[in-house]
Nucleic acid binder design. Structure first.
Length: 422
RNA sequence: GUGGCCGUAGCUCAGGGGUAGAGCACUGGAUUGUGGCUCCGGGAGUCGCGGGUUCAAAUCCCGUCGGUCACCCCA
């Protein structure tokens, strides 16, 4: 394993790409703040059993994708493969439910899954997500979906589709699973190997199969929406009606299942259609997990959450414009390094983003660097300027320049830059 | 995890047994203290890595690592 190569499926983000990331992050935080969420930060490692018990023993994530290791104290730990389990753990550990009836948390950070990497799918990938504890919905469910869609719109991601489904709860699920297995069993011989296995371990997932034969069988399978009990039905209808009231386009997708065991009732996915996405076109996934908090040892508390894959969003979001990193670039004649340094300090202390090439070199080469830096203004210091206690200020877009007194220069420039950007 | 395709300069790529190339990028210059356009010059590559075949391998063979596509799955 080369030490000069990032671990497979894990990536560096270099400064030139950071503005796009910042745009997403900034918009995410701005959006969730508008909806009343507070930020939560949890560790990237948790005790392995937390994930096994929340995500589910028979899921792909737990079965084959976790980065699990034994630390020096002999504890078995896992790099978090998703954010909900940690959020629930923190919610319980700090007894948050006892202090407030409804809790709205948002988070942004790296997640880890050992899968075969591909475009839009990495072993360390970034998710921005949110959780709501204590609100049974369905209005919050609709609000959350609407929040995600409007955020994507603001990012310039237009071509998206919202898929929703309900997995019901308790009785509904039991009755449906029975009907589903009864339907699938006669077709068992025609199912793919994976689906045959899932028929035993997690029959719902058979609906999720992309294999052509499986799809045909799944298409004719009984639909969970036809099995919803009265309360589940009312919940789902309430979700749909609220989405319509909010003007959020959506499509009911009865075979939408998703790979985590903890979901109940509302389930949704936002898929993109940009050619950049390839087969990994799920931009966001989420749903309701009303049983999870209790299953992990807390009081019965409804839960709802989603996560957006940032790398995928990056593939489909609009280019946007990026502001140059510098306001001014100082250019000086050899021998005037001290003057250049003190001018730079004054500019920076005055709140301007200023730089220079302190290696010196010809004015020509310094100006070339000034140009490449994207700075708005070039400041020139030569013997003439020093003698007159002045600085020559050149507009690097137009080219016109004037010599201004050094005294009062910094606030003057700050004002000029502020005026021109406004 | 299975199968296909691809790895040559920082980037995009040509070269498919006989001395490693182009464009862009980087860098120096085109007379005195001025960038962008143009012109001239310069630096830069263990041809992903390891093994094999051969007088000779970037080129052929095997393995391996990485990327990518499909499957699988998901964000």
């Amino acid at each position: 394993m080369s030490i000069l190569r990032a671990v497979k499926g894990m990536n560096d983000v270099l400064p030139e790409d950071i503005p796009r990331w910042r745009r997403i992050e900034g918009l995410f935080w701005d959006t969730v703040a508008r909806y009343g969420y507070g930020e939560v930060r949890t560790p990237v490692v948790e005790p392995t059993p937390l994930f096994v018990r929340s995500i589910g023993e028979a899921t792909d994530i737990v079965e084959k994708e976790m980065y699990t290791f034994v630390d020096k104290g002999n504890d078995t730990l896992t790099l978090r493969p998703e954010g909900t389990a940690s959020a629930v753990r923190a919610y319980l550990e700090h007894s948050v439910g006892g202090r407030e009836p409804v809790t709205k948390w948002a988070y942004l950070g790296p997640m880890f899954r050992r899968e075969r990497p591909a475009r839009g799918r990495y072993r360390q990938f970034w998710q921005a997500g949110a959780e709501v504890f204590g609100d049974p919905g369905p209005y919050t469910d609709a609000e959350m979906i609407d929040m995600i869609v409007s955020m994507m719109r603001r990012l310039g991601v237009a071509d998206v589709e919202v898929l929703v489904n309900s997995l019901g709860s308790g009785d509904t699920r039991a009755r449906y699973l029975e009907a589903l297995v009864r339907y699938l069993e006669p077709h068992e011989a025609s199912l793919s190997e994976d689906s045959r296995r899932r028929l035993r371990t997690n029959p719902l997932r058979v609906l999720d199969s992309k294999a052509a034969d499986d799809r045909a069988i799944a298409a004719a399978a009984p639909r969970i929406l036809d099995y919803l009990g009265d309360e589940d039905r009312a919940h789902f209808d309430g979700l749909c009606a609220t989405l319509e009231a909010l003007g959020t386009p959506y499509r009911v997708e009865p075979t939408l299942v998703r790979g985590l065991d903890y979901y109940s009732r509302t389930l949704f996915e936002v898929v993109g259609h940009g050619g950049e996405l390839g087969a990994q076109n799920t931009l966001c996934g989420g749903g309701r997990y009303d049983g999870l908090v209790e299953a992990l040892g807390g009081a019965a508390t409804p839960g709802l959450g989603f996560a957006i894959g940032l790398e995928r969003l990056l593939l489909v979001m609009g280019a946007g414009e990026t502001a140059p990193a510098l306001d001014v670039f100082v250019v000086y004649r050899p021998g005037l390094e001290r003057e250049a340094s003190t001018l730079l300090k004054a500019l920076r202390d005055g709140g301007l983003r200023a730089d220079a090439d302190l290696r010196g070199g010809s004015l020509k080469s310094q100006f070339r660097r000034a140009d490449k830096s994207g700075a708005r203004l070039g400041l020139v210091i030569g013997p003439d300027e020093v003698e007159r206690a002045a600085v020559t200020v050149k507009d690097l877009r137009g080219g016109e320049q004037e010599t201004l007194p050094r005294d009062g220069l910094v606030p003057r420039l700050a004002e000029r830059l502020a005026r021109e950007t406004a």
